[in-house]
Amino acid sequence: MELREYRIEREPYYRASGDEVALFEAAYASRMPVMLKGPTGCGKTRFIEHMAWRLGKPLITVACNEDMTAADLVGRHLLDAEGTVWHDGPLTRAVRHGAICYLDEIVEARQDATVIIHPLTDERRLLPIEKRNELVVAHPDFQLVIAYNPGYQSVVKDLKESTKQRFGALDFTYPPASVEAEIVAHEAGVEPTVARRLVQIGERSRNLRGRGLDEGASTRMLIHAGRLAARGVALEAACRMALVLPLTDDADVRDALSAAITACL
């Protein structure tokens, strides 16, 4: 069977903090394209992995970057001994064979890349491959999901209105403290008390968002710190390595953040 390697066999741990699971299931049932909005490391990827597993569909993930073109998504001609051969890109494979295609940080991709998803995300559900003169009709299982971090892009790098309006959206933020502590405890293997401290520390850094820091510490970072702590590293040193140093090079902000962390412990 196609796309076997894209199937998720074991349940990925996901701790819901609202009705996002039910909402997504309803969206999938009508194959509505969905966008997941939220800061980095807050569980968007984990969520879509969990949903793909739950729905029993293969998941093809593409991390977009600014050099990414339509060809990287759709496919390209390659040269071999006999001449040129066509090679399906990840999006085309998902469309042909029926996967959930997850485009991470879609705004990073170039305009031509975002525009090709237009015919796929309206009633037509078609992917035109211009270079091959082919029109791929989407497999009934196919769904497009994009992720994007609204805080982090500049105004110029926003999605076009015509793109935005094709999607339903789920808003991801860092979960409430008690839920986040549960996640940190589970993922890092630390005691709940330690996890709660880490979440409190995370909140300190999030207070500095836009005022010294571009972004506060993500759940992912807190898990990193927790993993260090689980291996016997003192919490303060673990936070320094996993949070303070990666977050900023600004000495004043580092000192302030370190002092705030010390105050939490």
């Binding site: 207070n207 005022r211 004043d252 000192d255 302030a256």
Partner: peptide, 15 residues
């Protein structure tokens, strides 16, 4: 000053 300002903001979320 900068450092103190950030310290205060980090702790109490206030500027």
């Amino acid at each position: 000053e900068r450092q103190l300002r950030h310290f205060l903001t980090a702790l109490w979320g206030r500027d």
